[in-house]
């Protein structure tokens, strides 16, 4: 779709041509090779999986590129594995130290997040121009560690503001080449999204709970059933928040004179995809994860458009420096990863 915009920008769809089962095949072959090589190949597998996804993502006919080198990832992975192993050994063998170790992990978490963001963005390029992240470690500690503590101390009242600040920190520090992203998000939208999602959690609960009241004690099936039902409703409410915030963030992002974005992600489609993906992954014991990934990205990309301005043609391309993959690997093992899609 090529529609002229008022500021001579052109609206472009993100074309995502990856096939669910094509990616599944690629993922399985690489997984088998990783296992046969006792995990060494997994670094190459990661590069290849990402190259596939990026290679099938087109904006204005040009594909995204993944530039990380397998050896970089392997080095990061080995160190991350040693850390993970010592963490697990400590928690299982020496329970007294485990509290100390959790504290250490909590303390390095912001550092890992910044390193991971920097690594992932530095190795993503569009039209030979790399993305990047300019947030400092100091402000990462402020945003990822101090603010959540303040939010908790305020009994959650300041939490939407904390989420607003965190998103402002992440997206406001994105770089395209040496151009900074501008983000124009509003704090009140976060309050609105949180309130709407709390309402969409409480209303169904308030309707269902009185109906079942009293039958909990006699029938364990009803009790277990209602626990699952409340998980489902919580999941639904969280999805409401995710969709509202995703649309708001993407619509407020811009690289001046180069690109801006539009998102009109619909709740029904998003929720159905996330939920069916979850069921699919659980019942296949993780084996259908690649299928789920392609389904999710298809929905996200088809709800996103990019406005390109003439300035996109006149940027100078980035140099080929390499960063350490350590932060990215450690944070993905310790579940601190962040996905920007």
């Amino acid at each position: 779709m090529d529609v002229s915009n008022k500021n001579d920008g052109t609206l472009k769809d993100i074309i995502f041509t990856a096939g669910k089962w094509q990616y599944f095949k690629l993922w399985v072959v690489n997984m088998v090779l990783s296992i046969l090589s006792l995990g060494i190949y997994s670094a190459w597998a990661k590069v290849r999986n990402t190259q596939y996804i990026y290679g099938h993502t087109l904006v204005d006919g040009v594909r995204l590129e993944y530039l990380a080198q397998p050896l970089q990832i392997l080095k990061g992975r080995i160190v991350a594995l040693l850390l993970l192993l010592s963490y697990i050994v400590c928690t299982i063998f020496f329970p007294l130290f485990s509290a100390l170790i959790s504290l250490i992990i909590y303390a390095v978490y912001p550092l890992l997040m910044v390193k991971a963001l920097r690594f992932n963005l530095r190795h993503t390029s569009y039209r030979k121009v790399r993305f990047g992240f300019s947030g400092s470690t100091k402000s990462a500690y402020f945003n990822f560690l101090l603010l959540p503590i303040l939010g908790t101390l305020s009994l959650g009242l300041a939490m939407p503001w904390v989420l607003f600040r965190i998103n402002q920190f992440i997206y406001g520090n994105l770089l395209y080449g040496d151009k900074k992203f501008e983000i124009n998000i509003k704090c009140r939208v976060f309050y609105k999204a949180v309130i709407i999602s709390i309402i969409s959690f409480l209303v169904p609960i308030a309707v269902i709970a009185p109906l079942l009241w009293g039958s909990f004690s006699d029938n364990p099936i009803i009790l277990i059933g209602s626990i699952y039902a409340s998980y489902f409703i919580a999941f639904l409410a969280f999805s409401v928040y995710s969709v509202l915030i995703r649309n708001h963030i993407v619509n407020s992002l811009e690289v001046k004179d180069i690109m801006s974005f539009k998102s009109n992600l619909g709740f029904g489609r998003y929720f159905w995809t996330v939920f069916s993906n979850l069921i699919m992954i659980i019942f296949s014991v993780g084996l259908l994860f690649p299928v789920a990934r392609v389904r999710m990205l298809s929905v996200l990309y088809s709800a996103t458009q990019v406005v390109l301005y003439p300035g996109i043609e006149e940027l100078s391309s980035s140099s080929n420096e390499l960063d350490s993959a350590l932060g990215e690997e450690v944070s993905s093992f310790f579940d601190a990863g962040l996905s920007l899609s």
């Binding site: 040009v62 039209r127 030979k128 080449g177 391309s317």
Partner: peptide, 11 residues
């Protein structure tokens, strides 16, 4: 096909 220059974002 597409020719992507080494020094700029031109395609």
């Amino acid at each position: 096909g597409l020719y992507q220059s080494a020094t700029s974002s031109r395609v």
